[in-house]
Design a binder for these strands. Structure first.
Lengths: 195, 195
DNA sequence: CTTTGATTTGAACAATCGTTCAGATAATCA
DNA sequence: TGATTATCTGAACGATTGTTCAAATCAAAG
C-alpha cells in the first residue's frame, strides 16, 4: 500500500496542523509524538515530513501564525480617544482569545519548547502586541486614566485579560459577550477611568 | 563502585527534589529525563528510585507540597475588615509567589502532566486557595467593594496577581516591596475600594 | 572490629522517540 | 491511454526513555 485514495495536500496539510494544535494543547509539545499526530490524521508518521521539516517547525508555525494574525487584526482597530481605544482593545482581546483558546494556550505554555532563534522571533511579536496596549494607556495617562506605573498596569491588564482563557467554558454561566462586558468594566476601574 | 563516600539520604533526597524543580521549570516535565535530574545531583538514574517510586511522584510531590504550604501560610493571615484583608492578601500573594517562582510556574504549567487522580487533588487545593480570596470579596461586596460579579473579580484578580511571576526579575527596576505596593493599589481600584 | 543496614552503581529491559527513504499507489496532465 | 508527479506506506536507523535489580561499597551500631 502507498498513496491513499482521495489524498491531497490541501486537505492533509491543514489536518496535520489541526491535530498538532489540539494534541499540543492537551498534552504539551514534548509529550506528543509524531506518531500520535499522524494517527489523529489517519496517516503514518513519515507522511508528516511531506509537510514539515521537523517537529519543532510544527510548533513554531502554529505560534508564528497565531501571533501574526493577532497583530494584523489589531491593526484594524480604530482607536479614537484613549477611553474608547481601551474599551475596544479589551473587547477585541477577550473575543479573539476566547475563539482561539488552544492557540493562546500553546503560544504561552510552549515558549520553553522553542529553540532560541524561534523563541526570539515569537517574543518579538508578543512584545509588539503588548506595546499596542501600552501605547493606549500612555496616551491617556494623567487624563482619561490615573496610573502610577504604565508598564506595570499594562502587564497586569494583559495577565488579567488572558487569564480568561483558563477558566472559560463554552456553554458556561456567561457568554463571551457578557464576559467581555465585565472585563471592560474591570479594566476601566483598574485604570481609574472616567465612566 | 557502589555506595559513594559521604552519601546520605538527608542530603541526596532534597537535592533530587531541587534538581527536579529547577529542570521541570526550565524545560518542562515531559522534556526532562530521570538521567538529567540524576546528573544534576551527581548520581546515577537508578539512585533516584530510592527516594521516589516514579517520575510522576516527583512532580506531584513538588506541587502538593507547594499548595499545602501556601494554604497553611494563608491560614495565618489576620483578616480584619474586608479592605484590610484584601491588602493583606495581595501583599502576601505577591511576596510568597515572587519568592517561589519555579514552584508557582510548574504548579500552573504542568497540570497537564498530572495523572487524573493527582490532578484532582491539586485542583482541590487550588480552589481552596481561590475560595479564600473570594470570601474576602464577598464579605465586602456592596460595602467596602463595588463589584457586579464576585466570582469573575476573584479570577481576574488572581490572574493579575500571579502574572507577576512571568515578568519579574531579581534586580530589575522594581523591588518586590514596590511591586506589592503597586498591586495593592491596582487591586483596590479594580474593586472600586474606598481609599 | 564485626555486623547490619543504607546507599549507589552499572548494566540491562522493552518501549518509544524523531527522522529517513526506497518503493508503491493514486491523481493529474498530455 | 500513457507518462508524470504528488502522496503515502512500511520498515528501518540509532538514540533515548522510565524502570528494575544484583552486586558493591560505605556509614552506623554493637
Amino acid at each position: 500500500m502507498a498513496r491513499k485514495a482521495g489524498s491531497h495536500s490541501d486537505i492533509t496539510g491543514p489536518r496535520i496542523q489541526g491535530a498538532a494544535l489540539a494534541l499540543f494543547a492537551r498534552h504539551g509539545y514534548a509529550a506528543v509524538s509524531m506518531r500520535q499526530i499522524a494517527a489523529e490524521v489517519g496517516v503514518q508518521a513519515g507522511a508528516i515530513y511531506n509537510y514539515v521539516p521537523h517537529k519543532q517547525a510544527l510548533l513554531f508555525e502554529l505560534m508564528r501564525g497565531h501571533m501574526e494574525a493577532l497583530l494584523e487584526e489589531t491593526d484594524t482597530l480604530n482607536g479614537g480617544d484613549p477611553l474608547e481605544a481601551l474599551d475596544e482593545f479589551v473587547r477585541f482581546h477577550i473575543h479573539y482569545h476566547l475563539a482561539r483558546v488552544d492557540l493562546v494556550f500553546i503560544s504561552y505554555m510552549e515558549l520553553r519548547a522553542l529553540e532560541p532563534d524561534n523563541f526570539a522571533q515569537i517574543e518579538k511579536l508578543r512584545s509588539r502586541y503588548e506595546d499596542k496596549l501600552e501605547a493606549i494607556l500612555r496616551a491617556g495617562q494623567g487624563r482619561a486614566f490615573t496610573l502610577e506605573d504604565t508598564k506595570l498596569a499594562t502587564l497586569a491588564l494583559i495577565a488579567m485579560l488572558t487569564g480568561v482563557t483558563n477558566w472559560f467554558r463554552e456553554g458556561g454561566r456567561l457568554a463571551p459577550e457578557e464576559v467581555a462586558d465585565h472585563y471592560v468594566a474591570m479594566a476601566r476601574r483598574l485604570l481609574s477611568a472616567a465612566a
